[in-house]
Simulated scan of single mutants.
Amino acid sequence: MNLLLLAIAPATIIILYIYFKDKFEKEPIAFLFKNFLLGVTLSVLITTILGGFAGKIIPLTIKTSVFQQFLKAFIVVALVEEFSKYIIVRYYAQRNKEFNEPFDGIVYAVMVSMGFATLENVLYVYQYGVSTGIVRAFTAVPAHATFAILMGYFMGKAKFSKNRVVLNFTGLFFATLFHGAYDFFLFINFIPGISIGAFISLFIGVFLSKKAIKKHQQSSVFRV
C-alpha cells in the first residue's frame, strides 16, 4: 500500500465530507486551500514553538503519574495544538469576506485542522508503517476533525454575534477539552482498560459534531 496515499486519505475524505455538507453557499477552493496550507505550515510551527515552552514550564518526569499525564494531555498537547489552529481561524479566516455565515466556522476550522492532521499523519505513517496508518485513519484523524468542528461551531456563531470574544474562546475551550480528554486516556494506558475512555470521548465528540453541523445547516442565511 502506498504510504503517502494512506497518510493523506483520511483527511481528504473528511475535507470532502465537510465541503459537501456546506450545502447552500460553498467556499472558494483557493481560499480553502490557503487555510489548509496554513494548517500544514503555520499551525505546526506555532505548535512546535509553544510546545517547546510548555514542555520546559511543565516538566514531565514521571510517566506513570496520572497528574503529570493530565497536564501533558490538556496543556502541553491539547491547548497548544488547538490554540495554534484557533489563531489561524480567528485572525485569517474569520476576518475574510468569504466567512459570511456560521457554517463557515466549521468549514475553515476543519480545513486548518486537517492541514495539521495531514502532516502529523504523514510523519506517523512513514515512521511506524501501514498498521499505524490504518488505526489512525479511524481514530486520531477523525478526532482532529471533531475538535475542529466543535471549535468552528462556536467561532461561526462568534463572527455574527456581539459576544465574539466569549464565543471564540468557547470554541477553543471545547476543542481543548475533547482533545485533552482523548489524549489523557491514551496517555494513562498504564492503568488497565482505561484507554476505552479515549474512544468514548471520541464517540461523544462525533455525536456533538453531527449536531453542530446540522444546526448550522438549518440556520444558514443562504438556505432556500
Rank of each mutant, 00 (worst) to 15 (best):
L119Y: 14
V122A: 11
S113Y: 08
V141N: 01
G133C: 09
S113H: 04
A140P: 03
M111N: 04
Y126I: 09
M111W: 15
I106A: 09
A137G: 15
V141I: 15
L119I: 13
S131A: 15
Y124Q: 09
A109G: 15
P142Y: 00
M114N: 07
E120V: 12
G115I: 14
Q127P: 00
L123D: 01
A140S: 15
Y108W: 12
A140G: 09
T118D: 06
P142L: 02
I134Q: 03
S131C: 00
H144E: 05
L119M: 10
M111I: 02
V130L: 13
D104R: 08
A109L: 05
T139P: 07
L119P: 04
A117H: 06
Y128H: 13
G129V: 13
V122P: 11
E120Y: 11
N121F: 05
I106H: 11
A140C: 06
V135F: 14
Y126H: 09
V122G: 11
N121P: 08
V135T: 14
V112R: 10
G105A: 10
Y128D: 08
I106F: 13
T132L: 14
Y126F: 15
G129I: 11
A117L: 11
G115C: 10
Q127W: 06
V122W: 12
S131T: 14
Y124A: 14
V112C: 09
M111A: 15
A117K: 11
V110P: 01
M114D: 03
A140I: 07
H144R: 04
M111P: 02
I134A: 05
M111H: 04
D104C: 04
D104P: 03
V125L: 02
R136M: 07
V135G: 06
V107K: 09
P142V: 06
L123W: 03
M114C: 05
T132V: 14
F138D: 00
V125P: 04
A117Y: 08
V130R: 06
G133F: 13
V112I: 12
F116C: 06
V125F: 01
S113E: 01
V110E: 01
T118C: 07
V112T: 10
T132F: 13
D104G: 02
I106S: 08
V125N: 02
V130G: 00
R136Q: 03
M114T: 02
V112D: 10
H144D: 02
T139M: 13
D104T: 12
T118Q: 08
V141K: 00
R136C: 10
V135K: 10
V107H: 05
M111L: 15
T118P: 09
Q127A: 15
V122S: 10
N121D: 11
Y108D: 01
T118G: 04
S131P: 00
T132Y: 13
